[in-house]
Design a protein around this nucleic acid. Structure first.
Length: 590
RNA sequence: GAGCCCUUAGCUUAAUAGGAAGAGCAAUUACCUUCUAAGUAAUGGGUUAUAGGUUCGAGUCCUAUAGGGCACACCA
C-alpha cells in the first residue's frame, strides 16, 4: 500500500478527531526539493471545511500524524503546506515489494480492447520525417495502452488507390524502360517515388507549353495530356482493366517491400492492415441507410450531405453527385468495418496530423449521428507538424527528409561520436554497428517523443539533435553503467535487505521509482509518450546524481552494498521498461 | 470571415485536471576519486506574449488583444 492512501485515511481521521469535521478528500504532492520532507499535504483546500489559520491547522494535523503513524517521523509547515518526513523503513519496505516484480508499473489486463491506427502512407512515395513522428507516436501510444492494461490492435490504412497512384504508374510506363528494384538496386518505394516526381516534372513542362500557346493556367492544368491520361488510367483501374490492375499490383508490391524495410528499421509493426482499395466502396451502403434514416439528405444534383448546422459546422459532403465516394465516405466505411472485425473494441485511436482536426471532428460526429454507440470512444491523436529550417516539406518538390536517410544519418553521427570518445575496445565490428544504430535511433526517437504531441517540432538535422543532457544517449548511458556494475558485482546480491540507513540519494531514487505506475496511467489517459519520456529523464537525472555521489561496489557495509546494487538494477530495469514503451532500445555497453 | 491549436529563461522545453515556476542546451567555474566524464557539483539567467476578470491562491479557468500555425473543397 502506498504511503498516500495510508495518509489520506489518517488525515481524515485526524480531522474528525481534532475538529469533528468530515472531509471528502485530501490533496497531496511531492515535497519540493528546497524544503525538508517527502510528501506534502496541501492545507488550503481544507479551509473550506474548517475556517482558520492554515499554519495552525497544518501544525495540529502534523502533530497528529507524527503521533499516529509509525512511518511519519517529523513535519514542518510552510504557509499552507504541511511537509511530512517519511522514515527509511517505509521506503525500504516499499522497495522490497517492487524489487522482484518483473512487470512493475504495468496494470493487470482489464480486458478492454483498443485499436490504434498510425502511419497510413500513400503508395506512391517513400516514408519521410512526417511519417516518422506519426509512426513513433502511434507505436508508443499502443505500447503504453498495453502497459496500462488494454488489449491493443495496431493497424494502418494504406492509401493504395487514387489519381496520385496513377501518376507514378503512368510516369513509369512512359519513361521507365521496364526498370525494377532488382534492375536498379533501388528500394521499391524509392523507385516508385522517383516516378512520382518525374510525373510532376513532365506535367509542369506540359503546362508551361500550353500556357505559352495561349491557355490560361487553370485550363492548362486540366488539359495537359499527362493529366488526362492519368485520369483515364484511374477510370480503367476502377473498371478493373487487367493491364492497369496488374501494373498497379506490381508497383504497389515494390512499395510494400520498401516500407517493410523502413518499418523494420524504425522498429514498429502492425497487427492488421486495411487497404483503401478494399474499403473505399464500403461507406456507400452506410450512406444509403443514413439517407433512409434522415441522417443525410440529398441535393437536387444527387450529391449527399450531412447537416451539421446544429453542431455549428458547415454541411459535409458524403457522396458526390456522380455517386462516387469521397475521403469521408471511405473513413465512415472503414470505421464500421473495424468495429465489425473486432467486436471487443472499446475505442479507436487515429494517429493523424493536426491539419485534419476538422475532418475527424466531423467523422466522429457523423458516426454518432448514425447511431453507433462506440462513436464516443473514438480519439484523434492529433500531433503538430515537423518543420524544417527551410519550411514545410513537400514531396513533389524534393524538400523532404527521407526516413531511411534520416535513420542512416543518425547512425552515422552516433558512430562519429562514439569513435571520438573511443570506449569500445574489445567490441567486434558487428557489435559496434548494432550499438551505433541503438544510439542513433534512440537519439532520434527520444528527440521526437519527449515533446508534447500537440506541439510543432522544428527539426534541424544538423543542430537540433543532441547527444547530451535531456537526450536518448544520456538515458541509455545510465542503463549501460548499471549493466557494467552488475557485470562486476561478483557476489550474490539477491535477498531482502532491511534495517539499513538510507542515503538521501537512495531515498530520492525510490521516491522516483514509486511514481512509475501512475506515470503509465497518466500517459495512457492523455495519449502522450512525452509523459513517459520526461519521467525517464527525471529518474535518470536522479540516478546519475546518486551514481556520482554514492559508491556502490565500494561500500563497505555488505547490506548497504547489496541494497545499492539491487536499487541500481531496479532503476535500469525501469529505464528499459519505460524505453520499451517508447520503442527505444538500450545498450549493454556504450 | 463563425472555428481549432500554439506562445514559459538567449535556444529546446516541464509543471500530477487551480496549489511552493523546474530541467536540458548555450555561458562562467570546479571535478577523470578503482562502479564508464555521452557524466557530476555550483553560479547567473523568469512580470509564464499583453490587458482585464474569477479565486484564499492562476502558467493552468473566463473575456478581449497581439504574434505564429491549421482548417472549413464534389482533393486525399
Amino acid at each position: 500500500m502506498g504511503i498516500q492512501s495510508l495518509l489520506e485515511a489518517k488525515v481524515k481521521e485526524g480531522f474528525l478527531k481534532l475538529y469533528e469535521i468530515e472531509i471528502p478528500s485530501v490533496e497531496f504532492q511531492a515535497t519540493r526539493k528546497d524544503f525538508e520532507g517527502d510528501i506534502t499535504v496541501v492545507v488550503f483546500p481544507l479551509l473550506r471545511y474548517k475556517k482558520g489559520n492554515p499554519v495552525q491547522i497544518g501544525n495540529d494535523l502534523g502533530n497528529y500524524l507524527v503521533e499516529n503513524i509509525e512511518e511519519i517521523n517529523n513535519f514542518n509547515v510552510v504557509k499552507g503546506f504541511l511537509n511530512l518526513v517519511v522514515n527509511d523503513t517505509f521506503y525500504i519496505n516499499f522497495f522490497n515489494t517492487i524489487n522482484t516484480n518483473q512487470t512493475f508499473g504495468f496494470s493487470k489486463d482489464v480486458e478492454d480492447a483498443r485499436m490504434v491506427e498510425y502511419s497510413s502512407p500513400n503508395t506512391n512515395k517513400p516514408l519521410h520525417l512526417g511519417h516518422v513522428r506519426n509512426v513513433l507516436l502511434g507505436y508508443s501510444v499502443a505500447e503504453i495502452l498495453k502497459a496500462a492494461g488494454h488489449k491493443v490492435y495496431k493497424t494502418q490504412i494504406i492509401n493504395d488507390r487514387g489519381i496520385h497512384i496513377c501518376k507514378s504508374m503512368l510516369a513509369w510506363k512512359r519513361y521507365g524502360n521496364g526498370e525494377t528494384p532488382e534492375s536498379t538496386g533501388l528500394k521499391g518505394d524509392k523507385l516508385v517515388g522517383n516516378y512520382y516526381v518525374k510525373f510532376d516534372q513532365e506535367y509542369k513542362k506540359e503546362i508551361a507549353t500550353l500556357i505559352a500557346s495561349g491557355s490560361s493556367e487553370e485550363d492548362a492544368k486540366k488539359q495537359a495530356p499527362l493529366f488526362l491520361e492519368a485520369q483515364e488510367m484511374l477510370r480503367k483501374w476502377e473498371a478493373g482493366d487487367e493491364e492497369t490492375v496488374s501494373l498497379w499490383k506490381t508497383m504497389n508490391g515494390w512499395v510494400y517491400k520498401g516500407f517493410d524495410v523502413t518499418y523494420k528499421n524504425i522498429g514498429v509493426d502492425f497487427d492488421k492492415l486495411y487497404y483503401e482499395s478494399d474499403t473505399y466502396l464500403l461507406g456507400k451502403d452506410i450512406i444509403e441507410e443514413g439517407l433512409k434514416n434522415n441522417v443525410f439528405y440529398k441535393k437536387e444534383d444527387g450529391s449527399v450531405w450531412c447537416d451539421l448546422t446544429e453542431d455549428g459546422i458547415d454541411d459535409k459532403l458524403v457522396l458526390r453527385s456522380d455517386g462516387t465516394a469521397v475521403y469521408m465516405t471511405q473513413d465512415i466505411g472503414t470505421a464500421i468495418q473495424r468495429a465489425k472485425d473486432f467486436t471487443n473494441l472499446n475505442g479507436m485511436v487515429y494517429t493523424v496530423g493536426n491539419e485534419q482536426d476538422h475532418h475527424f471532428k466531423v467523422l466522429f460526429l457523423i458516426l454518432k449521428k448514425l447511431g453507433y454507440s462506440w462513436a464516443d470512444q473514438l480519439h484523434h491523436l492529433s500531433y503538430g507538424m515537423v518543420d524544417l529550417p527551410s519550411g514545410k516539406m513537400k514531396s513533389r518538390e524534393g524538400t523532404v527528409v527521407d526516413a531511411d536517410d534520416l535513420m542512416d544519418e543518425m547512425t552515422n553521427t552516433a558512430r562519429e561520436i562514439s569513435q571520438e570518445l573511443g570506449k569500445l575496445e574489445g567490441y567486434s565490428n558487428e557489435e559496434k554497428e548494432s550499438l551505433y544504430k541503438i544510439i542513433g535511433l534512440g537519439t532520434l526517437k527520444y528527440f521526437i517523443l519527449k515533446v508534447d504531441p500537440k506541439k510543432r517540432i522544428l527539426f534541424d538535422p544538423k543542430e537540433s539533435v543532441d547527444f547530451q543532457g535531456n537526450s536518448g544517449p544520456f538515458i541509455q548511458m545510465a542503463y549501460a553503467r548499471v549493466q557494467s556494475i552488475l557485470r562486476k558485482a561478483s557476489f550474490d546480491y539477491t535477498g531482502i535487505i532491511t534495517g539499513i540507513e538510507l542515503h538521501e540519494k537512495e531515498k530520492e531514487l525510490i521516491k522516483q521509482l514509486e511514481l512509475y505506475p501512475e506515470v503509465i496511467q497518466q500517459a495512457a489517459k492523455s495519449y502522450s509518450p512525452a509523459v513517459v519520456a520526461n519521467y525517464t529523464f527525471d529518474l535518470v537525472k536522479e540516478f546519475s546524481s546518486f551514481y556520482q555521489n554514492v559508491s556502490i561496489l565500494g561500500e563497505e557495509n555488505q547490506d548497504k552494498k547489496v541494497f545499492r546494487v539491487q536499487l541500481a538494477k531496479k532503476v535500469a530495469d525501469t529505464i528499459k521498461s519505460a524505453f520499451n514503451l517508447l520503442g527505444i532500445d538500450v545498450p549493454e555497453r556504450m
